[in-house]
Design a protein around this nucleic acid. Structure first.
Length: 216
DNA sequence: CTCCCGATAT
DNA sequence: ATATCAGGAG
């Protein structure tokens, strides 16, 4: 018994309390391969996964592989992804990233953080989504939900950077839990611990959380 | 730090 | 009308 065994206790209790409450854990982004997951995750910035999935259904019929995306017309790609917002930057990043995949990565999405974040439009959050969901490599993506919940629960204080939150959680929890834990936090953030009107009265982890709902 | 940006909920 | 959504780049 040492400190490294005691430290993860609180996060593992949260994990256990949430596990199974939101059905089977699935990646919210519909995709059937690493390339599609990379594209879908680039599109997901500041947009609901529901809308991303609506767009990708059409998108993946028109563009079926890395070469299709690398040779895509900027205008045609923008027209398809427009509903997700930031369409100019996202279309540009997808085309540039796929050209880089062909030029520098043998046409394949790399399975390492250092390589993934070299791709335009791919930061640590997107890279961790790809690692965890496409390659089964341990990754803990910190999105808006994870950031909000980790602050409310009290794992971190006062809106620390996503990177600090990522390192705080990954240092307190065995890597085998990271990907599933991120899915649990996202599901909980969407259904219960919402940004606007958190349902603390019915919260499964009320006892494990520092946040108290304000009564107006 | 600002900017990028459309669709939905409140 | 405003806040929010699986963020990232300059």
């Amino acid at each position: 018994m040492n400190n490294s065994e005691k430290a993860p206790k609180r996060l593992l209790e949260i994990y256990s309390a949430l596990n199974g409450k939101y059905g089977r854990l699935l990646c919210p982004l519909k995709s059937s391969n690493p390339l599609q997951l990379m594209v879908a995750t680039i599109l997901s910035a500041q947009c609901t996964d529901k809308r991303v999935n609506q767009v990708t259904e059409l998108l993946f019929k028109k563009y079926r592989n890395v070469k299709d995306f690398a040779g895509a017309s900027q205008e045609e790609l923008e027209a398809i992804i427009r509903p997700v917002g930031y369409y100019h930057a996202k279309a540009s990043n997808i085309i540039k990233s796929c050209r880089m995949l062909i030029k520098d990565f043998s046409g394949k999405v790399p399975a390492s953080m250092e390589m993934l974040i070299l791709l335009p439009g791919v930061g640590r959050k997107t890279a961790n989504v790809i690692l965890g969901n496409a390659f089964a490599v341990p990754g803990f993506p910190v999105d808006t939900h994870v950031k909000r919940l980790m602050n409310r629960i009290g794992i971190v204080k006062n809106e620390e950077s996503p990177e600090k939150i990522e390192f705080a959680v990954t240092s307190l929890m065995p890597d085998k839990y990271w990907t599933d834990f991120s899915h649990l936090l996202i599901a909980h953030g969407r259904n219960r611990c919402k940004a606007r009107r958190p349902d603390c009265a019915n919260c499964e982890i009320r006892k494990l959380c520092d946040y108290k709902e304000k009564k107006s």
